[in-house]
Every structure is written in structure tokens, then in C-alpha cells.
Amino acid sequence: MQTPFYTRRSFLVSAGLASVAVLAGGSFSSRAFAQSGLAPTQSMRGGSNNYRPNAPMVEKLGNGFWVHGTVRRAGDGAPLKNVRIQIWAATTLGGERAPQNHGSVLTGPDGAFRLETAQIVPNFGQPHAHLAYDDADFQTVFLRPVMPSPEDTSVRADFVLAPA
């Protein structure tokens, strides 16, 4: 159900941004990298929308769709274990604000997390998930990854966290 216009447009935008980043940022980013290491992830626009703090720890929220990613420390990029990531999205079970679509998971020893949910469906015009790191040790980050296609059965979001 994807519109061609949207795909081409988002491709052009991301390709454009990527080339600008490569052209303009090459020397700068390598210097920044040498000085302070891996930069922390910035919160995304709209990332905290319909957040319900302290979503319960869950085994799974549904079947067939995976929200996954990694959590690392800013600077040295070390994987962070036992970090709580809160996840919510509009799925076939209901809207983004429905409690059954909110859950938390912990990262493993390798800093990876994954949560099985019901199929994410487009909400407010885009199929997307919400993820939050919102605990004491690091600065809060809200992410809102968009799926390239509503038929996708997984979505990935990676966190690089800066100390609070």
C-alpha cells in the first residue's frame, strides 16, 4: 500500500542528506570521533507522543512483528546490559495509546534488545514505532523509527546514551 511518490521522495531526501553529510562532515566527524568518540543519539521529533511512563516489563506484546535494536554508551561505544527500553506503537491490537500496546524490555549482555509485538500498522500517516530510554543513569532519549513499508515485519532503533 506504499505510494511511489513517497518512496522516491524519501529516498531522494535521505540520499541528499547522506551526500551532504559525507561531503561536509567528513573531516569534521572524524575529528569529533577521535576527540570524544561515539556521539549520543538525539531524540526524534514526536518520539515522546503518547508515552505512558513505566510501561510494564513484558515477555511479548503480540505475535509476528519484532522491534529490536542495541544500546551503547556514548564515547567508547560499549554495549550496555540490563537497560530498560520502553516500546509502544499502533498495532492490529489497537491504537498507540492502548495499554496493551505498551511494554518494556531489558537489554542483554551484548546491549541488544528485542520485543515481539502485533503487526505495526500506519498511524497518523506513517507506520512507525516509539521507543524510550527514560531512567536515571543516562540522558532520556525518545526515538520514532518509521518503517519503509507497512508490510515490514520488524523495525530497528539503536540507542547511544550519554551519562545523565
Binding site: 521529533r45 514526536g46 507522543n49 503518547n50 491504537g95 498507540e96 497518523f124
Partner: peptide, 8 residues
């Protein structure tokens, strides 16, 4: 349906 998305 979603006040924060609409306000944004």
C-alpha cells in the same frame, strides 16, 4: 485520537 500528534 492523539492530542500530541495533532498539536505537533
Amino acid at each position: 485520537t492523539s492530542p500530541p500528534d495533532t498539536v505537533d
